[in-house]
Write a protein that binds this DNA or RNA. Structure first.
Length: 274
DNA sequence: ATGTCAGCGACACGCTGA
């Protein structure tokens, strides 16, 4: 079974690239992030034509996650356990954002997650990011007892180690590399998840994100922030994992490349209610 | 040199977020 994760930076803007990539890579399950439209505006018919069912948690112009599956979608769960909202300075109340969704696909528990960016260390979004990661860990602790194999896939907006970015000096004083963010990742490993490290198709480090600005992709000024955090049953079944950097090339590309994982698990196609 | 994109409101470009 082939599972992938891809921050598409708008499913509508990316639809031609998404459809052609699905038609060549033929993943069984795809976790998407930054869907960036209401659930009603997700192009379900075009994806259904390729054989995908959808589970969507997406509310509008920002954020939004989804899971596409050709092998069934069971026990769909939207959002985290006691998920914190983001309290913007000009808002009366915090808003819970569309950043997590789970489904069981051919017996494998899959989470598509879009961790808050954090913006800057002294910004309220950074405190929100840390609270959100705590809720993610609590959700994993609860779910792991019931679901195996299990994996979180998505845009974590954390550079796990200094080698996972093109230049550590570029991140001094910024988010994505702080001890508190990396400790939050370590907490997920302490629960029993491990980082499924993909192979790069080019260069040494399997970067997954290159900023649109400053010629980051041609200079390979990349970051590895799209991660697969898997339990032992999932990780032990991995036969291959790679970052499809070819999807970052050319016009109409997302700023993220897909991470693709092949698993040696039998595909039991689930029945779904009519 | 943040050298770019995407969505939105409102209609052509400025704002926000990444």
């Amino acid at each position: 079974m082939r599972v992938a994760t891809w921050n598409v930076n708008s499913i509508r803007a990316r639809l031609p690239r998404l459809l052609s990539w699905l038609s060549s890579a033929w993943p069984d399950v795809v976790c998407l992030q930054e869907v960036k439209c209401s659930a009603d505006d997700v192009p379900t018919a075009e994806l259904a034509a390729l054989g995908y069912q959808l589970a969507v948690n997406s509310t509008g112009r920002w954020n939004g996650v989804a899971i596409l599956s050709k092998v069934g979608l069971a026990a769909v769960r939207v959002g985290l356990l006691d998920e914190p909202g983001y309290h913007a300075e000009d808002a009366l109340l915090p808003t819970i954002e569309a950043r997590a969704i789970a489904a069981t696909c051919a017996g494998v528990r899959i989470w598509s997650v879009y961790v808050p960016n954090g913006r800057a260390i002294d910004h309220p979004h950074y405190a929100y990011k840390l609270r959100w990661l705590e809720a993610l860990a609590a959700t994993v602790r609860e779910e792991r007892a019931q679901h195996c194999p299990f994996a979180l896939l998505g845009d974590f907006n954390i550079i796990p180690t200094d080698t996972d970015a093109w230049d550590t000096a570029a991140f001094i004083g910024s988010t994505h590399v702080t001890e508190r963010e990396r400790t939050a990742l370590a907490a997920l490993r302490e629960i029993g998840l491990s980082d499924v490290y993909p192979r790069p198709l080019k260069y040494e480090v399997p970067f997954t994100y290159w900023d649109y600005r400053a010629l980051a992709f041609p200079k390979n000024s990349g970051q590895r922030i799209d991660l697969v955090y898997a339990d032992a049953a999932f990780a032990d079944a991995v036969t291959d994992a790679y970052v499809d950097r070819n999807e970052r090339k050319g016009t109409g590309a997302s700023d993220h490349a897909p991470v693709v994982v092949d698993l040696a698990v039998p595909i039991v196609r689930q029945e779904h209610p009519a």
